[in-house]
């Protein structure tokens, strides 16, 4: 008896609750039904959503540069800064080569003009030279230079620019302490560059008796090449080009090596490269 009573009460409650819910949620139900319809129908869905998506995409397109450029720039800037050293060391030889090419080109133009003038002058001496060069198969200018001492590389050093610490060196004969030479060279360089107060200009050659020390500057290091004998302008250019080639090909990799053998490895590479170059350029 009690049980049925309870049951009846329960049924009644359920019924009332459902009724109440129907009344309250009538509007929502309708929208849910509609939504279900839209969701089921792909085309209708697309039609409704695409304008919103398009709008958002457009908004993003408009805003992207403004909002993200800053962030992207910051990332790029940071990355650049982090690898600044490497980038500069990488660019230096390339830039040097470009400038060198231009200068060599200018020189050749001048030389050509002079050659033209010379060939129009029919001198006996010139004629003799021509015959000689025909017989021996060498160029006039080279013939002119052949009496002078043959150039010879005595020493090659790669030196850290600021500290003057030696990265590597190659020489065919034993010399006094190379570390000291490198330090002194760097000190002299700093002294001269400072004494003349020429910003952006750097010492490029030191002449000492029959020795010439050529200096080729890169950003964080420089080459010094001690030569004996005489060098023609074109030989000087070739030597310089050869330094650039070495810098381009080897340096970054060599300098990034932090092993105990770093000095020996760099020195070996220098020896291979420059004594091979010497044979090609000066013989």
């Amino acid at each position: 008896m009690i049980e049925t009573q309870v049951k009846n009460n329960f049924d009644e409650e359920t019924f009332l609750a459902n009724k109440l819910r129907d009344i309250l949620l009538k509007n929502d139900r309708a929208s849910i039904h509609k939504l279900e319809g839209i969701l089921d129908n792909q085309d209708e869905l697309a039609e409704r959503i695409s304008p919103i998506v398009d709008y958002k995409i457009n908004l993003l397109k408009q805003k992207f540069p403004k909002e993200f450029q800053l962030a992207v720039n910051q990332i790029v800037e940071k990355k650049m800064k982090e690898s600044q050293e490497e980038i500069l060391d990488l660019i230096y030889p390339v830039l040097g080569r470009m400038i060198k090419k231009y200068i060599v080109h200018q020189f050749e133009e001048i030389k050509e003009k002079i050659d033209n003038q010379v060939s129009s002058l029919f001198t006996l001496k010139g004629l003799k030279m021509k015959i000689k060069s025909l017989i021996y198969g060498i160029d006039d200018t080279e013939l002119l230079l052949s009496n002078i001492d043959k150039p010879k590389i005595e020493e090659v050093h790669i030196i850290e620019r600021d500290s003057g610490i030696l990265y590597g060196s190659a020489t065919l004969r034993p010399t006094i302490d190379r570390d000291v030479i490198a330090g002194m060279l760097t000190a002299i360089k700093s002294f001269v560059e400072d004494a003349f107060q020429r910003e952006q200009e750097e010492l490029e050659m030191i002449e000492y008796g029959s020795y010439k020390i050529f200096i080729q500057n890169f950003r964080s290091y420089y080459f010094s090449i001690a030569m004996s004998g005489s060098l023609s302008v074109s030989q000087r250019h070739e030597l310089s080009a050869s330094i650039l080639t070495f810098a381009e090909k080897e340096i970054l990799q060599l300098l990034s090596n932090d092993g105990a053998e770093k000095y020996e490895i760099i020195s070996e590479k220098l020896k291979l490269h420059f004594y091979d170059t010497e044979a090609k350029i000066f013989n």
């Binding site: 003057g164 302490d177 570390d179 000291v180 760097t186 000190a187």
Partner: peptide
């Protein structure tokens, strides 16, 4: 006048430092 550079190697606990 100018600069002078020289070197000495100093040994500390079996480790060498070349002082320029």
């Amino acid at each position: 006048i100018g600069v002078k550079v020289n070197k000495r190697v100093v040994t500390i606990d079996d480790q060498e430092v070349s002082i320029l």
